[in-house]
Amino acid sequence: MPVERFPVEAGHIMLFARSVGDANQIYYDENYAKGTEPGGIIAPPTFVQASAQFDPDYGLRPKIGQKWFGSGANPTGSNVPPVDEPEQQRAGGGSGLHAEQHYEYHRHLKPGDVLRSVSRPGESWEREGRRAGKLIFSESITEYYDQNNELVITARSVGVRTERPVQQD
């Protein structure tokens, strides 16, 4: 998911840290953060995933004026399966799930950074799974650049599309 402009904001970092249950003061207290090795607020290691918020076409966010595929009056709010979404983002029985995520940090993000990302497809492969039938894996590589066009994070994501919902052991 390429994003043209992802402004990294202090409030977003604080809320993100709360949502992963991380109480580290470096994510919200500027005075505390000044005395740490990074010398200021930084973002937690997986924060860059929130770039989805800044992708206008991200398929897993309800769009104003469009039907959403989650439940409303009925179990699904849409009669139309979300087929025009990228494979990795498709939801439902026999759905797209996240299989792997890898990050390489060239530096850590801080409030005030403005990122853009470029993505390219990686490999794809198939195998027969024990708990979900045929599995189709596809990889994508995303590079995040800062306001100075410096590469800050390289991300590699693997999505899997399953033939049926994953059975529980």
Partner: peptide, 29 residues
């Protein structure tokens, strides 16, 4: 979300190793 578990796993790493010290972090769900 798988990424929530990754985020919580990352918290263990940063609490132990310090802030801004990670150079690589990857998981399989």
């Amino acid at each position: 979300h798988g990424m929530l578990t990754m985020g919580m796993t990352g918290k263990m790493l940063t609490n132990w190793l310090g802030d801004g010290r990670l150079t690589k972090f990857g998981v399989r769900f």
